[in-house]
């Protein structure tokens, strides 16, 4: 396999992924619209993928388990987005809102 000199340390990728994940957490906690929460969840999933791929490429290049894992993360994320948006559409049709604070029938 060809080896290229990267020049970017592993820590930079990890830091980028940590920042991206934290932004996603902030979005999930602060946003109240269901679709925007989903978008923040996408950010968090991407942060995890960056982390997995960076570790796979830097520490175990002959195994690339992390890369395969990232492929599966993307697949499951696609399924999750489709299903979650269908649920949001259904909630909107029944309740007339996509705000998660107003959908609280299960709350005492």
């Amino acid at each position: 396999m060809e080896v290229v000199n990267q020049g970017v340390p592993l820590e930079h990728f990890l830091m980028l992924s940590a920042v991206l994940f934290s932004i996603g957490v902030y979005g999930v906690l602060a946003r109240r619209n269901a679709v925007l929460i989903l978008m923040s969840v996408e950010l968090m999933l991407n942060a995890v993928s960056i982390n997995l791929v960076a570790f796979a490429v830097y520490t175990a290049p002959s195994l690339f388990v992390g890369i395969i894992f990232a492929v599966f993360v993307i697949t499951i994320a696609a399924a999750e987005v489709g299903l979650a948006l269908a649920v949001v559409l259904r909630v909107f049709r029944n309740r007339g809102t996509a705000n998660v604070d107003e959908v609280a029938s299960l709350k005492w």
Partner: peptide, 30 residues
């Protein structure tokens, strides 16, 4: 898909519901 969901749920007409009151807490947690 997300753009379609935004269009179908018409969130643009309800701008005041985008963020909750817990923004500072969310920032602290993040």
């Amino acid at each position: 898909l997300i753009l379609f969901a935004l269009m179908l749920t018409r969130v643009r007409e309800l701008k005041q519901h985008l963020d909750g009151d817990q923004r500072p807490l969310a920032a602290v947690a993040a």
